[in-house]
């Protein structure tokens, strides 16, 4: 046995597996096992009630169900809109915060507040602010923009999931800021100064110099925020409108509010969500790496 180890040497597989096992075991048993169990139950295996029908019954029911497709499309819309808005706002605000002079920088820490608040609390804030009897409506009234409560646009029940999008954006923008600021910390301000001296406008500097540098953080942020909004339960349970609902609410209703015979259907939706998430991660990372290959690195 050598007493000086070289970094990055190749180690015997058994020792390697042993070192990885505290993570690999729970990963295989709980995460992979859980996903497999979800899939099994969607096929009618290992369900609380013995499943009478065929293996793919739950899937055929779903594929014939227009409300499932409506939910799926609606979830995609809410996830895309909120992740895009959060990442765009986060990138812009991070840049502005980074430009703040040192003595003002501590004040900018307020952006971390929504990071600490749980999702349900952020949903509560959206209710307080944006409902027809909320703070914004009151302000509009005192400014003379509306005279009655019902003149305020019905944002939370517009059928477009705007309440959820607002909540996810408020919660997600600080997260995107955090990721972007971590990259900006290593960014050389002289690049911006040079561009400004050569006559570039502020907008041009942001889009052609800063944004490409932030791209890796923003892509990571987009994937995380998109998939979270796509499949999470907490915010939709408070802010969702009745129809079309988010997929997670659809699953919840079938799982808890209907009889056990419909369990495979809930599990089939979950299996499709899992598969969609995996495909999305792979496709998005591929697309990003292909895009970046074509971009000239500074």
């Amino acid at each position: 046995m050598s007493w000086i180890s070289k970094p990055n040497k190749t180690t015997r597989p058994i020792r390697l597996m042993l070192g990885l096992s505290p993570l690999l075991l729970p990963y295989l048993v709980l995460f992979c096992g859980g996903a497999v169990l979800t899939a099994c139950q969607s096929f009618g295996v290992l369900t609380p009630l013995p499943h009478a029908g065929g293996v793919l019954d739950a899937y055929t029911t779903l594929l014939r169900d227009a409300s499932f497709f409506a939910s799926f499309g609606f979830s995609l819309w809410v996830a895309t809109a909120s992740a895009f808005l959060a990442v765009a706002a986060g990138a812009f605000l991070a840049y502005r915060v980074w430009r703040l002079p040192g003595r003002l920088a501590p004040l900018s820490l307020v952006y971390k507040i929504p990071l600490i608040l749980p999702h349900i609390a952020v949903a509560f804030l959206v209710l307080i602010f944006w409902s027809r009897s909320g703070v914004i409506a009151s302000v509009a009234h005192s400014l003379g923009l509306i005279r009655e409560m019902h003149e305020f646009p019905n944002i939370l029940y517009s059928g477009w999931g705007l309440g959820m999008i607002l909540a996810y954006t408020l919660k997600g923008a600080p997260f995107a800021m955090l990721l972007a600021l971590a990259l900006l910390a290593r960014f050389d301000i002289r690049q911006i100064q040079t561009a400004a001296m050569l006559g570039a406008s502020g907008i041009r500097i942001f889009f052609t110099i800063v944004l490409p540098r932030l791209a890796p953080a923003l892509h990571t942020g987009f994937i995380i925020l998109f998939l979270y909004s796509f499949g999470a339960f907490d915010i939709p349970y408070i802010l969702s409108e009745s129809r079309p609902g988010m997929l997670s609410i659809h699953v919840y209703n079938i799982y808890f509010k209907h009889d056990l015979a419909r369990r495979p259907e809930a599990m089939a939706i979950l299996t499709l969500m899992f598969a969609f998430a995996v495909v999305f991660i792979i496709a998005y990372s591929r697309a990003v790496s292909r895009l970046e290959n074509g971009v000239r690195k500074l």
Binding site: G33, G34, L37, T38, S248, M273, F274, A277
Partner: peptide
């Protein structure tokens, strides 16, 4: 190993619930 933070946790947690 990073995927569990990304895929909706409902998808494996509800399968595990039964076990």
């Amino acid at each position: 190993l990073l995927t569990p933070a990304l895929v909706p946790p409902m998808t494996f947690a509800m399968g595990l619930h039964f076990i």
